[in-house]
Design a protein around this nucleic acid. Structure first.
Length: 473
RNA sequence: GGUCCCGUCGUCCAGAGGCCUAGGACGCCGGCCUUUCAAGCCGGAAACGCCGGUUCGAAUCCGGUCGGGACUGCCA
């Protein structure tokens, strides 16, 4: 049997990282088994679904490198399809379920139903207890599945093992709304049958719905796929991952300067690992080793710190050419303009030193702007910490005169003459270099000093030394 | 409340009866390196929720208990 999985996002919002991880696991499973990975758009909530969100979600999948397979009896854009294009199919099947006695019309109002649920609760019964068995046979309203009460629903979950649900705990759920549109349960189940989905890997929040889908599948005469319920994602505080914990949209991570490879790796490690030792691994290794049975049963806390660390690992592993290309837009954003050819060359030269200390792409841009533009003000904290000390003026003077007459303007030569400053003044190296750093770069945190000065050029360096000297008074 | 799921360092993952005085990673602490910040290197603190049972032997199996979570919609 060839594996066929699907990811079915609802275009009612951006792509949530939890959904992204579920998509990733489906993709990994498909690629690992040589199966097929489909994307379908679950837009049965006509009110809230938009094509903008649909584009955003598909764009995020692409960014993560989750390519989906096309041409599998589906015709929508990008090889995906929308459930909203199949409304008639769902309505017809709901109708046939009524005819075959598996479902029935229910025209009671939501208020009436709410009363019935409350009554059941008060009597300690399942909330759906009185909802079942409608009093009328009116041919309008919603259609509910008539849940057979005679047998326990049992199934094997790939991740959680054998599970069973008592029929008395499954209410007669709505499959077709009064406006004729299908609910998630119907549309999803019908599509999984129609598209011959073999494995459904989805969030654990849908575990309680699974017996409903199995019952529906039976009523429709189909074969149920195998299920794998993935652990949920939580924030650092153990609560469900939400806006409170920071970014929850995958696109926000892309925009913040995370690399797709790092996010891919991090999402993969959140609930699974290739072994007990490996944390950083390639897409290929993940595909090679991944299996749903090895996915953790525990909910996982999303740890932004670890993601940032991992991103730094990936940035350092990039080759220099890639790095400068990827950082260029961020430099230009920080600068507010494009880079000239000579500036680009300067940037390329110093980039390797910046790369080592970059965890997020935009940081790299901020680290080098001092090379291309005079800063308006010094970093306040840096100034207070470094420039208000005794002897700073002497350091600047000594540094200036050492540099002023220097012949070869390169990092080695600059280091050689600048090393004489602390000797001359009888102070430690740090005491000498920090003031020079603040004067030249505007901050006490910067790329290495000598290389920075070399990249800045003589004229600008001397200008900045003079400027700082003036500021000191 | 009911049904179901889950329970190893603060966090993620490893461990599928003896290899566990529980391993790796992030974070944290200390040190080295050092012109800053990073990176790198070395070292450290840090966990099997609890109680019973099975067994020669349990983190691993069973029961209970406690704790956390999901679901309980004409949302998915």
């Amino acid at each position: 049997m060839t594996v066929r999985v699907r990811m079915a996002p609802s275009p009612t919002g951006y792509l949530h990282v939890g959904t992204a991880r579920a998509a990733l696991y489906n993709w990994l499973y498909a690629r690992h088994t040589g199966g097929t990975f489909l994307v379908r758009i679950d837009d049965t909530d006509l009110e809230r679904s938009t094509t903008e969100f649909e584009d955003e979600i598909l764009g995020s999948f692409r960014w993560l490198g989750l390519d989906w397979d096309e041409g599998v009896e589906i015709g929508g854009p990008h090889g995906t399809y929308r459930q909203s294009d199949r409304l008639q199919r769902y309505a017809e099947l709901a109708g046939s379920l009524v005819e075959s006695g598996h479902a029935y019309f229910d025209d009671r109002t939501p208020e009436v139903l709410e009363d019935l649920r409350m009554r059941a609760r008060q009597e300690g019964k399942h909330p759906g207890h009185y909802v079942r068995r409608p009093e009328s046979e009116a041919a309008s309203g919603v259609i509910r599945l008539s849940v057979p009460q005679d047998s326990v629903v049992e199934f094997h979950d790939i991740i959680r093992g054998d599970l069973s649900f008592a029929p008395t705990d499954i209410d007669d759920f709505v499959i077709l709304r009064s406006n004729g549109s299908p609910t998630y349960h119907l549309a999803s189940t019908v599509d999984d049958i129609d598209y011959e989905i073999t494995h459904v890997a989805r969030g654990e929040d849908l575990l309680p719905s699974t017996p409903k889908h199995i019952l529906l599948t039976r009523a429709l005469g189909g074969t149920s796929p195998e299920y794998a319920h993935l652990p949920l994602l939580f924030g650092a505080d153990g609560k469900k991952l939400s806006k409170r914990h920071g970014a929850t949209a995958l696109s926000e991570y892309r925009d913040a300067g995370f690399l797709a490879e790092a996010v891919f790796n991090y999402l993969a490690i959140l609930g699974w690992s290739p072994d007990g030792e490996t944390t950083i691994f390639s897409r290929e290794v993940a595909v090679d080793r991944f299996d749903l049975v090895n996915v953790s049963r525990n909910p996982a806390a999303f740890d932004p710190d670890k993601l940032v660390w991992m991103n730094g690992e990936y940035i350092r592993a990039m080759d220099a050419g890639d790095f400068v290309e990827r950082v260029r837009p961020h430099v230009e954003t920080s600068l507010g303009r494009g880079l000239s050819d000579t500036e680009w060359t300067t940037f390329e030269e110093i980039a390797p030193l910046v790369q080592e200390r970059t965890k997020l792409l935009p940081e790299a841009g901020q680290q080098v702007v001092f090379l291309f533009e005079d800063f308006d003000t010094y970093d306040h904290q840096s100034w207070e910490k470094v420039m208000t000390k005794e002897g700073v003026a002497d350091v600047l003077d000594a540094g200036r005169s050492a540099l002023d007459t220097l012949g070869d303007w390169n990092a080695e030569a600059i280091e050689r003459v600048l090393r004489t400053v602390p000797e001359q003044l009888g102070i430690g190296a740090g005491k000498a270099f920090q003031p020079l750093r603040v004067a030249v770069t505007g901050s006490s945190v910067s790329p290495p000093l000598f290389e920075s000065i070399a990249a800045l050029g003589r004229v600008r360096t001397l200008e900045r030394l003079d400027r700082a000297r003036k500021e000191l008074g």
